[in-house]
Design a binder for these strands. Structure first.
Lengths: 229, 229
DNA sequence: TTAGTGAAGTGTTAAAATTACACTTTTTAA
DNA sequence: TTAAAAAGTGTAATTTTAACACTTCACTAA
């Protein structure tokens, strides 16, 4: 790189870059968020999203994966960038630009000890408290974006165990879109999606009769490739 | 701020932060992008989006507005953040994180001398050349996002003059979604949108008969608040 | 043994939205 | 006066979506 090329960059300022993660779970017919009750500064004692700074040598996407992994012990989650927040005073301590990411977690599968160590808790969406900085806005934006994605792509299943009943699936979509759905119409729609397939197993935990378990088959989805709920 | 609070930030690295702008126009029934044929380093001679670094004391959103303003002379454009690109080597010169924004411009209204000074050109979407870095990806993502927004919000009109004919409007949506639409069905749909109102003026430039001119009324849209095309 | 419980599972009809489709009107330039 | 060229207009068929209630099953407890 020539001197002038170097100057092209170096005359411009640099910024702290962070990621904040909106971690969605699903339990008891409600979406939940995994939130920190901060036992560290800044904003100790307040509620916030799990976040962290982008470090040298990692992409912003990787930082988000790392941060979620640090809290949940989980890798390979379904994660998407929501947007980037770059207002001057969004962090009152110092200027920090932050990219928000949402993650979808099977709430049965996270590392409890890590969550406990971070003083983090699952909070049902209607009970989410006020969060620090612009995290309330991030949650709003993430929810909307997630709702949109869930309406056009079969991503909701990432919030359920690998095998799930149709009642669970319906309850999930009712929670995501905050609207009741008709059982027969819902099941008709799912039946038309050949990539949601019966596993042959039966779940007996919720009813004497037992409910057929289904799974999402990503390969078959790739062939067909359309979803709308 | 205490010393420990300061350390909380300062132990972390800082990054150059840029914005890159996908500037859409509409002409001759096609979407166009305003692109730079770079007459400066780095990547001199290649095509790129208009971009710039975020400076101290300006938000990322403001940086995007400034950068589009520098090229077009226009402020108050409809602009939305697309997403942020944070891969390690996305800029081969040095690590730069960049937020992409798209802007919708009335192609009749920009400052020609500024565009000329930047060696920028309107290029019809199907003829857009390969761009530097990850700008091809940015264009893809911006187009998809813009298409989505245009399908659920009345934002397409930002690409047209204040007053427009229904033929222009239909051609615009056909260009955005790359699909032909039925004239009668289209006009039926628009007629049901009370916030797209006849101005009483007539455009005579395209036909002997003349075509009624319409305008978008944002106040009336706010009252009604739904759009789908 | 059988009656009660509680979730799982299953079709049809009405209403609404979308799509397909072709001719008439208007103006002016030749 | 007529040819040209875009503007403007309505109906019927199809598809999609929404509304709606009872039966089945397997177990538990009387």
């Amino acid at each position: 790189m020539t001197a002038s090329e170097k100057a092209y960059y170096s005359i411009h300022p640099k910024f702290h870059m962070a990621v904040d993660c909106i971690i969605f779970g699903f339990e008891d017919g409600e979406l939940s968020l995994l939130l920190l009750k901060r036992n560290f500064e800044p904003a100790k004692g307040q509620w916030s999203l799990m976040g962290g700074f982008v470090e040298e040598g990692e992409s912003v996407d990787d930082a988000a994966r790392r941060v979620v992994g640090q809290l949940t012990g989980l890798t390979d989650l379904y994660m998407r960038q929501v947007r980037t927040y770059g207002d001057l005073d969004r962090d009152p301590g110092e200027r920090v630009i932050s990219s928000a990411y949402y993650a979808l977690v099977d709430i049965k599968k996270y590392d409890h000890s890590l969550v406990q160590a971070h003083n983090a808790f699952w909070v049902k969406l209607p009970e989410v408290p006020h969060l620090i900085f612009d995290h309330d806005q991030m949650v709003q934006d993430a929810l909307h974006f997630m709702q949109y994605q869930a309406s056009v792509k079969p991503v909701g299943m990432n919030l359920l165990p690998e095998e799930f009943t149709l009642s669970q699936l319906q309850a999930l979509y009712e929670a995501i879109f905050r609207e009741e759905m008709d059982k027969r119409n819902f099941r008709k729609k799912i039946a038309s999606m050949d990539y949601i397939e019966k596993t042959g197993n039966i779940d007996k935990t919720l009813s004497r009769k037992g409910a057929a378990l289904y799974r999402f088959n990503p390969e078959r989805f790739k062939e067909i490739g359309q979803f709308k709920i």
